[in-house]
């Protein structure tokens, strides 16, 4: 009787059609028949003790802060970027030279405007002061003076 029941349950087990209760019954029957070939299978699948589970509570940090592993990675990435920038600076320094800017600040424009005004004022003063003197100099200049004298003489002789 037991043997027939065992065969029926074994067939159902292989077909995957047993209910949980029937499966428990099969396991009990197989346990009674130690030489049954499914004995090793049930022993294997039922063994949950032999695996040594690592203590994850000691191993992982469940804080909301970034883990040390992530921080280490960030430091590594920053170091690599720094190294690349330094290497580029050494090998291609021209890349780091900034070209003169084409735009001028308001302060620069104001300074330039002031300097222009001062120059113009100086030039105007110079002209105002020097022009009458120049005229004066022209009137008394030796060659012209002599020329005037000569002209006067010629007219007198005539």
């Amino acid at each position: 009787m037991n043997g027939d029941r065992l065969k029926v349950l074994e067939k159902g087990f292989l077909e995957g059609t047993l209910t949980p209760e029937e499966e428990t019954e099969l396991k009990q029957l197989v346990a009674d028949h130690k030489d049954h070939h499914l004995s090793a299978y049930f022993q294997w699948t039922g063994d949950t003790e032999s695996i040594e589970v690592p203590d994850m509570r000691q191993r992982i940090n469940l804080d909301n802060r970034p883990s040390a592993f992530r921080i280490q990675n960030l430091i590594k990435i920053a170091a690599v970027v720094l190294l690349l920038v330094a290497a580029t600076w050494l090998l291609r320094p021209e890349l780091f030279k900034t070209s003169p800017s084409n735009t001028y600040s308001q302060v620069e424009i104001d300074k330039s405007y002031q300097a222009t005004l001062e120059t113009l004022t100086a030039m105007a003063d110079f002209l105002n002061e020097s022009l009458p003197k120049a005229e004066e100099c022209m009137n008394i200049s030796a060659p012209f003076k002599e020329l005037n004298t000569l002209e006067n003489r010629e007219t007198q002789e005539q």
Binding site: L14, E15, G16, H37, A40
Partner: peptide, 16 residues
Amino acid sequence: LRVNLSRARKKLTEPL
């Protein structure tokens, strides 16, 4: 699931 479980169990246990 049933079909695959059946195949797997047979492959595992029939040689035994």
